[in-house]
Simulated scan of single mutants.
Amino acid sequence: MTHDLPLPLYKKLTVTFRVEPGCLGPDGIEHIEGFCKFAKKEVARLDSDFVRWVITPRYDKTLLETEYKTNNKRLDHDKAEKYLRVFGKELDDFEEHLQDKLSLLIDQYLGR
């Protein structure tokens, strides 16, 4: 299957990642908004031909940490996995890479 990359925005996989304020330490609530803006800029180029990133605070713990959508429709784990496979990616590796990148960005943001 061939794709003309980059994909139009509505065909891209929108990955919403919600960051818990506690990830930024005991006063994380004071830094979470700024960190999310910083992280969004830093990850914007990752797989940008077919992924649109949304990095946002996770104030509501009932919301999933990571959520996938395309064409404004939510994808469950299996559908997100199938979507990424088209581009030669495995969902578990994709998520692990994002987690690793965010850990590095937290350290960078906090000046560690």
Rank of each mutant, 00 (worst) to 15 (best):
C36M: 06
K37C: 05
K37N: 10
F38W: 00
A39K: 07
K40P: 00
K40D: 04
K41R: 05
E42R: 14
E42K: 15
E42N: 08
V43L: 07
V43N: 03
V43I: 13
A44V: 02
A44N: 05
L46E: 06
L46N: 05
D47I: 01
S48R: 12
D49F: 04
F50P: 04
F50W: 06
F50G: 00
F50C: 01
F50A: 01
V51E: 05
V51A: 04
V51I: 11
V51Q: 06
R52N: 09
W53P: 07
W53K: 08
W53N: 05
V54S: 09
V54Y: 02
V54K: 13
V54D: 07
V54E: 12
V54G: 04
I55M: 09
I55R: 12
T56R: 07
P57V: 01
P57Y: 04
P57G: 00
R58Q: 12
Y59I: 09
D60Y: 10
D60P: 00
D60K: 12
D60F: 08
D60M: 03
T62P: 02
L63D: 11
L63K: 15
L64E: 14
T66W: 14
T66L: 14
E67N: 13
E67T: 15
Y68H: 03
Y68E: 03
Y68I: 02
K69P: 02
K69I: 05
N71Y: 06
N71F: 06
N71L: 02
N71M: 03
N72T: 14
N72V: 12
N72L: 14
K73H: 12
K73A: 14
K73W: 08
K73I: 12
R74Q: 10
R74G: 12
L75G: 01
D76P: 05
D76R: 13
D78Q: 14
K79R: 14
K79E: 15
K79W: 09
K79Q: 11
A80V: 06
A80D: 02
A80I: 07
E81I: 03
E81A: 15
E81Q: 15
K82P: 00
K82N: 09
K82T: 09
Y83N: 10
L84C: 01
L84F: 03
L84E: 00
R85T: 05
R85C: 01
V86K: 11
F87N: 09
F87E: 04
G88I: 09
G88C: 07
E90K: 15
E90G: 04
L91I: 09
D92I: 05
D92N: 08
D92Q: 05
D93S: 14
D93N: 15
